[in-house]
Every structure is written in structure tokens, then in C-alpha cells.
Design a protein around this nucleic acid. Structure first.
Lengths: 153, 153
DNA sequence: CTAATCAGGACTGTTTAGGTCCGTTATCGG
DNA sequence: CCGATAACGGACCTAAACAGTCCTGATTAG
């Protein structure tokens, strides 16, 4: 239902945590910091490392550190690292799941929607999320997000 | 993985179909028009009728017709009608699923993201989607869609 | 060499969505 | 008034995805 996985939530928490710690931290350390079972955190960090969002150091005294500053990491990247490419339906550009593209009346119709979401998610950085903690309704300090009208009906 | 349900896809197809037919149509009729099993279409139409997106007429010669023109129906409304409120995580404003809000370091952080997505989806109408069929990359002819910049990073 | 730590995969229990079917209610035409 | 048509509302079953765990191997510091 247009919901992202819980692992993505953990990933953001872990990254924000790494951003505030400013150094190398082990996965058990991160796990206890964000109150998530260790094996699960390890799994998430592995995925993040695969996309370069975090950099790992093996061996004793190893651990993870950020690949780039929080401000340069978009939410969309985290989602993609954990959940795979953003594709609202299976008929969207990237994913070639819909075989009967000729007969399917929906072919290509979700693409603009998909792009809009991708754009929205790319305009929000983890630094924005880290700052969004307490104050109830905030406006993003960095970039516009111009489209917010909520003129739904 | 940030994917919306297949039923939502059917819903859009059915609505677009109803928009082109310009009259009352039965659920079996719609089902065959969009090549989806009839009971499933019926289920979708029921949900849409509940939100007023379509209007139903019972009895012989009954069926469904649009509640408003396609142009005035936002994609977000369809998604909400089928999948329920848009809540990326269970910790988001509307859904009060996260009990430990005091200790949870993610409390409130997804709200701006959620709002950004909602805004993006509210700016695209079904008329836009109906028009987005064939030409590969189109710009929406009717209304702004201002938020779409795709300026990813 | 040994301890610490990441890497990668396999496995399993639970949840959720997709889809189907039933009986009921309402309306129209004859 | 009666029967056919069609939406309504709910219960139900199946299958796939997800969350979470564990195990074995590879790498590095002391």
C-alpha cells in the first residue's frame, strides 16, 4: 500500500546515527544505538555498503562510516539501496515485467507518476530528515519542494 | 518496495475506461474492456464507489459511471480509495502504530517525505495519465505538474 | 595465531495482498 | 406481481513477499 519496508526505516536511522557519530562504528554498536536487533542491522548495513552509501572496514577495529555527508544522500538512494529500484507498478520503465505491452492499456501511463515520486524523494536529503525531528511541521530549508499544494480535491 | 498494489492499477484503468465510455457501464463490461477478471474489477469498483469516485446504479440496466470528470480526480485519491491512507512507514502522522514514540529516534522524520509524495501524487490527474499513453516522454499538456523537475541530484 | 569484524548466502515463520465465492438487496421490464 | 439483472457486503483461501535469524567464510589488527 505504497509503504516502504521497515528495513528502509532502519537504514535511515543507522545512517543518521553514523552521521552524528562522525567516526567508525561497528554494527553491534549501531544496533544498540538505534534499538534494533543486531543481525538485522548488519543486513541493512551490508546493503548500504553495496551501494557505497557507507564504507566498511574489515577486521579488528573495523566498522562502518558514511560514504558521503548526510546532506549529499537523498532519501531515494536509501530506498533504492534497500528495496531495489522504485517502480510503482511492474509496468514501469525500468522493470520489464509486463509482457503484453501492446494490449495493456496502461502501458507507459505510470511513468510520469513514477518520475514525480522519484523527483520528490530525490529532493530530500538525510540531513533534512535528521533536522526534521521535533518541530511539528517544517518547511525544507534547502530546496523548494515547490509542488506542495495538497490541492487534492 | 515502494510499489503500489495491482488493484490500484486496475482502478486507474477502470476509471480511464469509464471516462472514455461516457455512460453507465456494468462491471462485467469494464472487466472485459480492460482484460481483468470480473470479481476483481467488482471489488475495485466497490472501493471506488465508497469514496465517491464512481457512482453506482443498482438493478437491471444499472452499472457505474464517473463521479466527476477525470481531470478532477487526482491519482492520490485513487490510491487512497484502494490502499487506504498513504503512510510510508507506520510511524507517520496519520497512522498511530508506533507506540514508543518517545524513544524512537525516527519519530516524525518521515512526515515531510510522506507529504512530498502526497503532494506529487495530488498534482497528477487521471486525465493526465490518460493522455500519457503513447508518446515516450511527454510533458503534461493540461495542468502544471509544477513539481516535476527530475533534478535528482 | 587469535580475536574481532565484515561478507554472503540459505533458511524459516509471519504477514499481507490478490483473488474468488457466497448470499443479500435493489431496480427495471414485462 | 414476478423474474431477471446488477450492485453490495462479507468471508474465505492461496501464494508471494518480507523480516528476521543463523552459519560459514574472508579479512585485518595486535
Amino acid at each position: 500500500m505504497l509503504k516502504l519496508s521497515r528495513l528502509t526505516d532502519y537504514a535511515v536511522a543507522a545512517l543518521v546515527r553514523l552521521g552524528s557519530a562522525e567516526g567508525v562504528e561497528t554494527s553491534p554498536g549501531i544496533a544498540s544505538a538505534i534499538s534494533v536487533p543486531e543481525p538485522t542491522v548488519a543486513k541493512v548495513l551490508k546493503a548500504l555498503a553495496g551501494q557505497g552509501l557507507v564504507v566498511s572496514t574489515r577486521g579488528a577495529h573495523g566498522g562502518y562510516r558514511l560514504g558521503r555527508p548526510l546532506r549529499e544522500i537523498a532519501v531515494s538512494e536509501v530506498i533504492i539501496a534497500i528495496d531495489g529500484p522504485i517502480a510503482l507498478t511492474s509496468c514501469v520503465e525500468g522493470a520489464g515485467g509486463c509482457e503484453s505491452q501492446s494490449s495493456c492499456p496502461m502501458a507507459g501511463r505510470w511513468d510520469p507518476v513514477n518520475r514525480a515520486i522519484l523527483a520528490a524523494l530525490s529532493n530530500i536529503s538525510l540531513a533534512d530528515m535528521a533536522a526534521a525531528a521535533l518541530p511539528a511541521a517544517i518547511r525544507l530549508p534547502t530546496e523548494p519542494l515547490h509542488g506542495i499544494a495538497a490541492d487534492a480535491r
